[in-house]
Amino acid sequence: MKLTLRVWRQQSADAEGAMSTYEVDGISQDMSFLEMLDTLNEELILKGEDPVAFDHDCREGICGACSLVINGDAHGPERTTTCQLHMRSFRDGDTIDIEPWRASAFPVVKDLVVDRSAFDRIIEAGGYITAPTGAAPEAHATPVPKPDADLAFEHAECIGCGACVAACPNGAAMLFTSAKVNHLNVLPQGAPERETRVLDMVGQMDAEGFGGCTLAGECATACPKGIPLVSITGMNKEWLRATRRAAKR
């Protein structure tokens, strides 16, 4: 395959960025999207040019490191992570636009790499349970009803890649935050911090400068793990409940 790539190049966080055009040839349909970029970078290095910086780690679709907006879609045309996207999703001669996640809470570090530590701070605000450490507890010691376990697992699938923020017209982190809140709030292990968790995490989300939700639904469409839009409704419900309870105290 022969492709024309238009890639966002930006030297540093403060530098002005622009789209640069590159031609790549000899791309196999079986290559992943990131392998295609590796091919481009090898050529750039051989030519003595600066390779395109992009985030990647596991390349198995489970770590959440890869983060590219491909032709206007977070993670590209398939419902998966960029690393699990293959070149067979494109056609020979295609022009592909590659951009970084766009949100003021995710500033560009270089080229296609953005700083997603805002997500870490949301997690620090309440995306955990307080439990004694040590040997793993007996699995059946805390019974969890099957529907709750399923719900928790569905939300636990979130890998924190930030595609929801990238796709949202408001740069909102509602789907990410709601996945974490719902995952822990539905389980007995998460119950002691049920109220503070949602209040603190939403508070941190707002403090990071993410936008608000207008229920456009683009986050859920972009999510490689299929976190549903109704997850946001669940978090709203938890937030209202926690606010009412906090007022009573």
């Binding site: 206007g72 766009r102 949100a103 003021s104 949202c168 207008t214």
Partner: peptide, 15 residues
Amino acid sequence: RRDIRARPSKYVHKK
């Protein structure tokens, strides 16, 4: 106002 601030630069490839 907040939403517009949260997404200051638009994507080049619009959808």
